[in-house]
Computed example of a mutant assay.
Amino acid sequence: MAPKVLKLEDLPIPEPGPGEVRLRVKALGLNRAEVMFRQGQYLYAPELPSQLGYEASGTVEAVGPDVDATWLGKTVSTVPSFRLTDYGVYGEVAIVPTFALAEYPVNLSYEQGTSIWMQYITAYGALIHFGKLNSNDFVLITAASSSVGLAAIEIANAGGAISIATTRTSAKKAELLAAGADYVIATDEEDLVARVNQITAGKGARIVFDPIAGKGLEALAAATAVSGIIFEYGALATDPTPYPLFPALSKHLTIKAYTLFEIVPYPALLAKAKQYIYEHLAAGDFNPRIDKSFPLEQIVEAHRYMETNAQIGKIVVTV
C-alpha cells in the first residue's frame, strides 16, 4: 500500500459519545507504529480518511452521557489500547474512550506525560510479564535508542539485570551508556554474536528484545542463551524474516511475537503494569527522555524526523 498524506484540517469540535471523553490536547508522543500505519505497513490498514495517533496528554474538557463526571478537569494521558481505525489523538482536541485514560504523576510535564505508556508497557510486558526478568539476566536490546529501547534499559537496570544495547554505528554509543546500558554493540562495526559471547562468557543473552526482525534474527538466535527467549515486537526490517530452525532446536529457544496489546485489553494485567510503572517513576528509576519537540503545525516534519532514525528517546509534538 502506498504511503498516505499526513495533513492537518480544520474540523468542527466533536462531542464525546457513550464511554468517551473529549481531551484538550497539550502534547503528543509519536510512535513508530503511527509511521507504519500511515505507510500502509502496520498490523492493519487505515480506513481513509483516517485519524492517527496513540499517545496524548492534556485535560478532560467534556464527557459522554454515561461517563463519570469526576473525569472533568483531570490531567491525563492516553494508553495505546485502541485501534487507530477507531480513534486518533493528533489534533487540538481528541475523542478517546475512557478505558484509554490514565492519570500520571503530577511532577511530570505534559511532554513527559505523553511519553510513558507505549514505551514502558511495551517493555514491561516482554521483560517482566512474559520474560520473568531476574537479577543478573543478560538482556539484549536492539534498536536501543528508541523510546521503547531506553525503557527496556531502565527496566533491566531496575531489575538488577545486565543490559546489552545495540545500535548501528558508534554515533549513539556514549549516549546509550549514559542512559544506563551496561554494554553497547555497534552492529555495523562489530560482530554481534562474538561480542555477546564475550560479554556473557559464552552463555548468551537469556532475553532478547527486538523490534527489527528480518535476516538479523539469525544472529540474534545465535546470541541467545540455551532456553532463552526472543521477543519480536516490531517489523522495521525490509527483508524477509527467516526462522532460525537449527539454533532454535539445539538451544530450545522460544521466539515470541509480541505487542503491548497482549497487556492493555485486560484490566487486571493493565492495572499491574501501571502500578509497576508508577512505582518506578516515583522511585526515579524511570525518566522518560524527550529527544526533540515540534509544534503541531510541524507534525509532518516530526514524522520525517522519526523516519531518519536519528532520535534517542521520544519525539514529542506540542499543541
Rank of each mutant, 00 (worst) to 15 (best):
A94S: 11
T98K: 14
H129V: 11
T167M: 11
L84H: 02
A100W: 01
N134T: 13
T167S: 15
V148N: 02
G53N: 04
E103C: 07
G180F: 03
A144S: 10
I162A: 04
T122P: 06
G180Y: 04
E92T: 13
S109C: 09
V89T: 07
T114I: 05
A126D: 10
A126S: 13
D86I: 09
Q51A: 13
Q112C: 04
G125P: 00
T167D: 08
N107E: 14
F130V: 11
V148T: 13
N134H: 15
R83P: 01
S115V: 00
I162L: 12
L127C: 12
G149C: 06
I128P: 00
A144E: 09
A156S: 11
T78C: 04
V96R: 04
T142A: 13
H129L: 15
S81N: 11
K172P: 08
G159W: 03
A94N: 10
S77H: 07
G91Y: 05
I95E: 01
T98W: 07
V67L: 11
S147N: 13
L150Q: 03
A102F: 06
F130R: 15
S50D: 05
Y120A: 00
N157K: 14
L140A: 04
I164L: 12
P105K: 04
K173R: 15
E92K: 13
I116R: 01
L52F: 10
I155Y: 09
N107P: 02
F138S: 00
E61V: 14
P80K: 03
G91I: 12
I141W: 06
G53R: 03
S170M: 13
A102N: 12
I116W: 00
T166C: 13
V76G: 02
G88E: 02
D137K: 02
A151F: 09
S135Q: 12
S147W: 12
T75E: 10
G73Q: 11
S77G: 08
Y87Q: 05
M118I: 10
V148L: 09
D66N: 15
N157E: 04
A123S: 15
L133A: 00
M118F: 03
T114F: 03
L176T: 11
R168T: 13
S77W: 01
S147L: 09
A102K: 10
Y124N: 06
A143H: 12
A62E: 13
G64Y: 09
S50W: 07
V93Q: 14
D137P: 05
V106P: 00
S109V: 07
Y87C: 03
L177Y: 08
F82S: 04
L72Y: 12
Y120D: 00
W71H: 08
K74P: 07
L84N: 01
L84P: 07
I95F: 08
I128W: 02
W117P: 00
P97W: 06
I164V: 13
Y104I: 02
V76I: 12
A143I: 15
G180K: 01
K132R: 14
A151P: 09
G73I: 06
S146Y: 05
A161D: 04
A181Q: 01
W117Q: 01
S146H: 04
A94E: 08
L140Y: 06
K74D: 09
L108V: 08
